[in-house]
Amino acid sequence: MPAVVSLSNVHKSFGALQVLKGVSFDVAAGEVVAVIGASGSGKSTALRCINALETIDSGEIVVCGHKVHDPELDRRALRRDVGIVFQSYNLFPHLTVAQNIMLAPTCVKDMGKAEARRLAEEVLAKVGLAEKADNYPEQLSGGQQQRVAIARSLAMQPKLMLFDEVTSALDPQLTGEVLRVMEDLARGGMSMILVTHEMAFARKVASKVIFMHQGKVWETGPGAMLANPQTKELAEFLSNDL
C-alpha cells in the first residue's frame, strides 16, 4: 500500500535550537500512528511540518502525493487533504458550531449553504453533537468544543487527520468522549497521526507507536512495544509517565 505520509531525514531548527534531527517514518493508508515522547522532543513540530505550518530545513516530506518540502508546494491543496486538530480547539468564536463547520466547505469547495448545512449536521452526528449545531463555541464544554473541532476537520473529508494532544486541556471525565470519537474514526479506516500522552489509548488504537526523543525517532513498534520497551529512554519515559 502506498504511504499516505512519508518523512525522510527531516531536519528543523528554530534559530540555534535543533528540534528535529533527522526524523524519518511512514504512515500507510488506514494506519493509526501514535507519537509519544517527553515535552520538547519535537512531536508538535513534526506534526506542524507535515501540514506545512513550519518549513523544514532539509529532508523530504510527502503527504498524500504533495511534496511538502518543495518550495513550490500548493499549501491549499495540501490542507484540503489533511485535517489537523489542536490542543486548544481553535474554534471560531464568532460563528455557531454549524457555521464553524460550514465555513471551509462553502469557501474552499464552493458548496451551497443548504448542502453544507446537511454536511455539518452529518459530521456533528458523527461526534455526537447533533443538537448543538446552533450554539456558539463558548456555550459548550471543552470536550464538546474539541469534538466540534474534529467535526470541522472531517467536513473537508481529509485523507489524513493529525491530532496534537487533543485531550491534554480536558478534565479526565471529558477526555473519554473525545477519545471515543477518535477511536471511531480509526475504526472507520481514517489515516491518523496522533501526538498523545494517553498511553492506554495509544496501545489500544495505534497500529504503530513512534517514540521521539531529543528530535529523533528513538523507537518504533506496534502498540505492544509500550509493554516491552527496547531502549532505556523509552523505559524511563514510560515509568515517568505512569
Binding site: 489542536f86 471551509a104 469557501c107
Partner: peptide, 16 residues
C-alpha cells in the same frame, strides 16, 4: 494567531 492558523489549516485563502 491560532485563529489564523486554524483557518489556514482549513485551506482558506489569506483573503478568506
Amino acid at each position: 494567531k491560532t485563529q489564523w492558523e486554524a483557518a489556514e489549516c482549513l485551506a482558506l485563502t489569506r483573503w478568506q
